[in-house]
Design a protein around this nucleic acid. Structure first.
Lengths: 192, 192
DNA sequence: GGGCTTTTGTGTCAAACGTCACATAAACTG
DNA sequence: CAGTTTATGTGACGTTTGACACAAAAGCCC
């Protein structure tokens, strides 16, 4: 058994308890991958074949929209990443997943992951719980978008996710909040 | 084995193939429930204990926001409903699920469903695939919200989900699209 | 550190939106 | 079918936003 970073174990246990053989099976199925700033984990048009775990660094999910980018997700340390629609539907990805800085990742191939689901009910349960958490977070994000004004949304990022403001450019954050770059710049001035 | 509506079988098979004993187990675990227009399947503040399947009729997911309602989901025939955050987190629901008309439902209790996951890998796989589809749909909905203007969003509902316009009031649709009732009324005039 | 690139701030203007108020139309109910 | 309630249309007005243009600041690289 290879040496395993503590953070990966902690992150797994936050999703579902996994130990013994299933844990070993799951972790040994991962490969290490190092990406530089700007590298793509997944490019629009290609099929997504992996699930990644961010050990260090950060990535973003970004849609091309004409001459603009729409940032839909930011992934920091100790989070899992994938494009489920492309991965499970075996179809071209509608967006990019890109490293925002040099990052160390671990990745699982989808075929291997599916095989693991068949081998171990514990790993299958882990997969289901992970999906549940993703879906819950996604629903919360959508309600948040509809319920609050752009200014309120920025306020809540300030108080609830200050890390985002430290690690993401204002331009990137603006599309995440659903406003133009200029408007976010003015919101920031109004507030401070 | 009770008589089972064709539609339920079809809807199940659209998520994942399920047959024989697991299918029978799953279907027999459901109870019939009939609700009248305006009845709540789930009220804000209460815990969600069920997953429902809409046999006939329709329901909506609706958030109370001060003196306004925000409609976040519409559920028509042959769809599954639940509030996953409340169901899995065992916490009070942040919103209501309400019948929009007299409806016939089937429902599964969460405890029974969890037991079924343990009993049958096929049912567990079904649960996971259902979550995957929900998550994929949810992500698509969010990208759609950020990518298009209110007018474009109305246009796409017109062409892609005309049923929505037939079966939902303009006021309900407006909060789903993320605009005021008056703005949607004017968009509709501009277009037609 | 100097030059280049990227990011952010800001002024101006037109368009879109939300809110309030009220009129009209449609649906429900007894 | 008459009365009531609910849903929708519309006018007026102020505010917010997006788009464009350009300046200032920050970050990056040789």
């Amino acid at each position: 058994m290879k040496t395993i970073p503590e953070n990966l174990l902690t992150s797994i246990s936050k999703v579902a308890p996994l130990s013994g053989d299933p844990l070993e099976l799951f972790i040994n199925a991962a490969q290490k991958q190092i990406v530089k700033k700007g590298d793509y984990l997944l490019q629009e048009g290609n099929r997504c074949n992996h699930i990644w775990f961010v050990e260090t660094g950060s990535c973003r999910g970004v849609h091309d929209n004409g001459n603009k980018e729409i940032n839909t997700d930011f992934y920091f340390e100790n989070t899992f990443i994938t494009n489920l629609k492309s991965l499970r539907g075996n179809e071209p990805s509608a967006y990019n997943i890109q490293a925002m800085e040099t990052s160390i990742l671990r990745r699982w191939h989808k075929d291997e992951l599916l095989a693991l689901y068949g081998q171990s009910p514990d790993i299958a349960a882990f997969g289901r719980l992970w999906l549940e958490q993703l879906l819950i977070a996604q629903e919360a994000h959508m309600h948040w978008l509809k319920k609050y004004t752009p200014e309120e949304r920025y306020q809540s990022v300030l108080s609830d996710s200050p890390e985002l403001i430290q690690r993401v450019t204002l331009t990137q954050l603006s599309s995440y909040l659903g406003v133009s770059r200029e408007t976010l710049s003015r919101i920031r001035r109004r507030i401070q």
